[in-house]
């Protein structure tokens, strides 16, 4: 499957066919989740109505990690197996992951203020998620930092792989250190630990965000492939128009 996708024409056809399903699925899931989250699910006995922030914050946090895993896997695919679409996939996904991470951080702040009495604390969970956000920004900056796009994508891919150590740090930060952030409480080894009336909007929102991620990444991959094609065409034109000018200048430049 992944090998078959190496052909960009085939990828484009498949992406064009898949994208509308992902987009409509995302809209449907998020719409249903919004209704359940805002109108149907009960207020929390401790947190009152503020608990509704959870239905955005927690799925955004999951997506921040899922998207990073995607970027790292795609980067590995590009560095190790040299799959032609791998770096494109990583570059398409990074801004989406950064957006989810940003959403997670800000909604966490909006939840922290009424519940903890502070917008921000430098504790392990919050700080490691902030590091994740900077990893995304670094990745995006590196892809654009070189004249030669291939060098940029390699450098960014290496950063993405090094940054993978941060993922388990985020996951287990609430267990390893004393933090203000509560430990994992949706899924425990014994099964779901929250009531179905709260679990459903949460899972539907997470599914909707995942489908949204898929749809937007496909659109961005197509755009990136076209941008590369335009660049190749422009370079071919320059070389044809002025072959002499394309030669390197005198050695003592």
């Amino acid at each position: 499957m992944i090998q078959r996708l190496a052909n960009p024409a085939r990828f484009n056809r498949l992406a064009g066919r898949t994208m509308p399903w992902l987009a409509w699925g995302a809209a449907l899931c998020i719409g249903a989740a919004l209704w359940l989250a805002l109108a149907v699910s009960p207020a929390d006995y401790q947190q009152g109505e503020a608990v509704r922030i959870m239905y955005v914050h927690v799925p955004a946090a999951w997506m921040a990690l899922v998207a990073y895993a995607f970027v790292a896997l795609a980067s590995a695919g590009g560095l190790v197996w040299k799959h032609p679409l791998a770096h494109v996939a990583a570059q398409a996904a990074a801004p989406v992951g950064a957006a989810f991470t940003f959403l997670c951080l800000v909604t966490g702040s909006l939840w922290g203020k009424p519940m903890w009495g502070t917008w921000w604390v430098w504790d392990a969970r919050l700080t490691s998620v902030l590091v994740l956000f900077f990893l995304y920004l670094g990745f995006i900056a590196l892809t654009a930092a070189f004249d030669e796009p291939q060098r940029g994508e390699r450098a960014a891919a290496i950063l993405a792989l090094v940054g993978v150590v941060n993922v388990p740090v985020i996951k287990f930060s609430v267990d390893w250190w004393n933090t203000l952030h509560q430990p994992a409480s949706v899924m425990k080894m014994s099964g779901p630990a929250i009531h179905p009336s709260m679990l459903w909007p949460l899972l539907l929102m997470a599914l909707g965000f995942t489908l949204y991620f898929g749809a937007v990444v496909l659109v961005r991959m197509k755009a990136l492939l076209l941008a590369r094609r335009a660049r190749a065409m422009a370079m071919a034109q320059v070389h044809r128009a002025a072959p002499a000018a394309a030669e390197p200048g005198s050695a003592h430049g």
Binding site: L34, L38, A43, G48, E49, A50, R52, I53, V56, H57, A60, A99, F102, L103, V106, T107, L110, W111, K113, P114, Y212
Partner: peptide, 20 residues
């Protein structure tokens, strides 16, 4: 009013909509 948490709940949902 969201039980007086409206000032925190609504910005959450509005920001999510704007970003996505």
């Amino acid at each position: 009013a969201m039980g007086n948490y409206g000032g925190y709940v609504w910005p959450t949902y509005i920001l999510a909509a704007v970003i996505l």
